[in-house]
């Protein structure tokens, strides 16, 4: 029993095992905290900041912060929701996200969060950056217009020796996720499929598979993101 700890999210008593990150522990307790860059089971790197919560007056990312005994977490408050909505809007204006024309529409986590936070139009001016599309690999398309730099592909798509297919390039506002030319040309279909699945948006697409599933019947077309989280 000593491994069980108590904590609170928005005043609700919760319980979990020691060592869990806040997002996981919240889910176990039926509480949804939005995420974008996080993937269950993969070492987190809090980069999208969407899962930000407030603990002791400090903003912390719940995908990277382990729950501590007696922790009191503020998540679904006006201030935090406003922050998360701002982040969604920032991601929209800093890329070129044209949902109606996107192969990932309905399965896209960014789009789903746009709906979740009832974003009508972003409050920030669109940047309309000039971005490239890399279609040189036989199996995938890497569309920089839609990339939100979550690092999920970098962390998960590797060859047998552990070498990564994807990596960051440059820094700051010029940051991109790029595909290794040599390895990309030899990527297996299965890995290409996996890469598309792991991308939260439509930046990695498996060639010829974009519309396999009809729009309207996709994951978030049916139910809002987070709505299946239950105790």
């Amino acid at each position: 029993m000593s491994n069980l700890i108590k904590f609170k999210i928005d005043g609700v008593e919760c319980m979990t095992e020691r060592g869990k990150f806040i997002v996981e522990a919240a889910l176990e307790n039926g509480i949804f905290i939005p995420t974008l860059c996080n993937m269950p089971g993969v070492k987190p790197k809090g980069s999208c900041r969407i899962c930000t919560v407030k603990i002791n007056g400090r903003l912390m990312t719940s995908c990277t912060t382990p729950v501590a005994d007696g922790m009191e977490i503020e998540s679904n408050s006006a201030e935090i929701n406003e922050l998360r909505k701002s982040i969604v809007e920032l991601l929209f204006v800093s890329g070129n996200h044209f949902c109606p024309a996107c192969e990932k529409s309905g399965n896209c986590e960014l789009q789903a969060l746009g709906y979740y936070y009832q974003m009508m139009v972003p409050r920030y001016p669109y940047e309309f950056p000039l971005r490239e599309v890399d279609a040189s690999s036989p199996h995938i398309i890497k569309d920089q217009n839609r990339c939100i730099l979550c690092k999920r592909c970098i962390k998960t798509i590797k060859d047998e020796e552990g070498k990564s297919f994807f990596a960051f390039h440059d820094r700051g506002h010029r940051l991109e996720v790029v595909l290794d030319k040599e390895m990309g040309s030899q990527m297996s279909e299965a890995l290409a499929e996996e890469a598309m699945k792991n991308c939260p948006v439509g930046s990695i697409l498996k060639k010829e598979k974009g519309f396999n599933q009809a729009i309207g019947s996709r994951k978030f077309d049916k139910k809002a993101i987070g709505s299946d989280v239950k105790l």
Partner: peptide
């Protein structure tokens, strides 16, 4: 700051640019 941001955080990477544009 725009030049020196590592670019990892959505906030730092983008908000510096949005504010500077303004």
């Amino acid at each position: 700051f725009i030049e020196e941001s590592c670019g990892s955080c959505s906030t730092c990477r983008n908000m510096t640019q949005v504010m500077t544009n303004k």
